[in-house]
Design a protein around this nucleic acid. Structure first.
Lengths: 159, 159
DNA sequence: CTTACTGCAAACCATTTGCACGATC
DNA sequence: GATCGTGCAAATGGTTTGCAGTAAG
C-alpha cells in the first residue's frame, strides 16, 4: 500500500469517527493504521506488541476496545469464527455454515453449487487443502425480527 | 437420524478407534454419540452439560480431550476459526481466507469465481447476510514441507 | 499386567468489566 | 466544562497441563 493510499484511508477513517460521534485519539489512529498496514489478520495481542514500540504507554485493553469499535463502525471485521469458544461438528457430509453475529448460532445449509467450486490453481499447487467451505455471516431469522422490533440495530460482529 | 444410522456410525467409530490404537471407553462413546446427535455444532461446555445428565461423573476435561481426539482421527472437525484468539481484518475488499491448521496463519487469496457465488434463496429470504466468503483450511507451503520432512504428519486441526 | 484414559486441581491465556484519571471536543 | 476514552487491576471464561488413581486391552 502506498503512502497516498494510507493517507486516504486514514482520512476516511477520521471522517467515519466523526460521523459516529467518536473522538479522534492518537491511540485510535495508531491501532487503525497498524491494522491496515498488516496483512496477517492480527490478534489484539499481536497489534499491541507492535504498537508498544512506537507508543509505549498504550494498553492491551485499549487495543481490544479499539478493535471492537472498528468493527462496529464497519472499517474492520473479525476473521471467521475467531474469538468464539471452539465448536465441533460431527457431520462429515458436505455442507456449509451460516453464523449469526448476534446470537452466535451456527446453522447448516446445503448448496450443490458451492460444493462444485474449484480451488484456485496457485493454492492447489502450493498448499494442502483439507477443507473447503462457504461461510456466511449475518442475522438469523429470530435475531432479525428481534432487532427489527427494537428499532436501529447496533450490529456487533464480535458478540 | 434413525437408530440404524446411529448404530452404524457408532460401529464405524469403534473401528476407527481400534485402528488408531485408542481404547473404547464409555466416555468416548458417549461424547461421540452426543456430538453426532447434535445439530448445533456444540462447544465442549454445551456437550458437557448435556452428557452430565446421563453420565454424572464425566468431567469437562474428558469432553475437551475427547473432542480433540475425535478431530485427530478424522470423525469430527472444528467449526471455522472457533477456538482461536480473535483476529481482525481491516481489508474490506472482496477476498478469501486460507487458514493453516498447523501454524494458524491466515492467508488472503482472491478468486473472481468465488465472489460471484449466489446465496441460496431460502437463506436470502429468511436471514440477513452481511458477509459471504469462501474459507479454505489446510497446510500452508512452509508447514507442508516441514511436516513432509518429519515423516508421518499428525494433523491437529485445533492447533 | 501394561498402557492409556479419566477426573481433579492448578495454571494459563484471551477477553471483559469497573473505576478513576486524563484527553478531546 | 461535559463527555468519552484510556490505563490499570481484578474478574471471568475457555482451554491446557501435571498428576495419581482407574479401567481397557
Amino acid at each position: 500500500m502506498s503512502d497516498g493510499d494510507i493517507n486516504t484511508k486514514m482520512a476516511v477513517f477520521q471522517e467515519k469517527c466523526r460521523q459516529a460521534g467518536l473522538k479522534i485519539t492518537p491511540q485510535r489512529l495508531a491501532v487503525y493504521r497498524a491494522l491496515i498496514l498488516s496483512n496477517e489478520h492480527p490478534s489484539a495481542d499481536v497489534l499491541y506488541r507492535q504498537l508498544r514500540r512506537d507508543f509505549p504507554s498504550i494498553s492491551l485493553d485499549t487495543v481490544n476496545r479499539t478493535l471492537l469499535t472498528l468493527t462496529q463502525i464497519g472499517v474492520a471485521f473479525v476473521v471467521e469464527g475467531s474469538g468464539q469458544a471452539r465448536r465441533y461438528d460431527g457431520n462429515l457430509e458436505n455442507h456449509q455454515h451460516f453464523r449469526c453475529v448476534n446470537c452466535g448460532k451456527v446453522i447448516d445449509f446445503h448448496c450443490e453449487q458451492f460444493n462444485d467450486i474449484p480451488i484456485p490453481d496457485d493454492i492447489e499447487e502450493n498448499f494442502v487443502v483439507l477443507r473447503k467451505t462457504v461461510y456466511l455471516e449475518g442475522l438469523c431469522q429470530s435475531c432479525k425480527s428481534e432487532l427489527n422490533s427494537q428499532g436501529a440495530p447496533r450490529l456487533n460482529i464480535t458478540k
